[in-house]
């Protein structure tokens, strides 16, 4: 379980998080809220990418964290497969995940040549293959066609381990994923 107590975070003059306290339990938690309320900042604090100005986080020490970032952050000059293998050398599993994500014909294509939705799926495969206790998904289904979205959401449900925090704006996504829904 992750416990966040009285978290404050500002960027210069702009206060993004103000006295936020929240718990994340085992399983999937969907984090919802309007744009700009600080959802990404909050999960970046959980991931250790950002430090809070004040407040306390318990339960992340020594834990392995995996992330689907809001931006793709892919090695654009490398293939989809290499991008997944970048975080875990298990080739068999990498191929299996990419195939499940409907990318079997694009394994050896450079990610720069892939569409936005395909890139998003590569990001998800990369996050799922990485050993993790905490999985953070920042709008992971952004840019996916409605048809493929269902199978990708199912993939997340099947493969996510430990504590999963998923940022979404879409009520239907949170309903499909199940678990807790928290608003910020």
């Amino acid at each position: 379980m992750i416990k966040m107590k009285n978290i404050y975070k500002s960027f210069g003059e702009l206060q993004v998080l103000r006295d936020i306290s929240m718990d994340f339990n085992e399983g999937i938690t969907c984090l919802m809220g309007q744009s700009g309320v600080g959802k990404t900042t909050l999960v970046n604090i959980v991931a250790g990418i950002l430090s809070p100005d004040s407040g306390e986080i318990i339960g992340t020490e020594g834990k392995k964290i995996s992330v689907v970032f809001q931006e793709d952050r892919l090695l654009e000059w490398e293939t989809a497969l290499t991008n997944v293998l970048f975080v875990n050398n298990n080739r068999e599993r990498a191929v299996e995940l990419l195939m499940q994500a409907g990318l079997s014909e694009n394994l050896h294509k450079k990610t720069a040549e892939l569409s936005g939705g395909m890139k998003r799926r590569v990001c998800l495969c990369r996050a799922l293959i990485a050993e993790h206790d905490i999985l953070i998904l920042d709008e992971p289904f952004k840019g996916l066609d409605s048809e493929i979205k269902i199978s990708i959401m199912q993939m997340v449900k099947n493969h996510a381990k430990g504590i999963t925090i998923c940022i979404t704006h879409d009520q239907s996504e949170s309903e499909f994923l199940g678990g807790e829904i928290k608003n910020i």
């Binding site: 392995k64 964290i65 992330v67 970032f69 970048f86 990485a130």
Partner: peptide, 16 residues
């Protein structure tokens, strides 16, 4: 820097 941050989050070894 975003790629380096990504590699750090995933604890990618230095040689990679």
């Amino acid at each position: 820097p975003q790629l380096l941050e990504m590699a750090n989050v995933f604890q990618v070894p230095v040689h990679k």
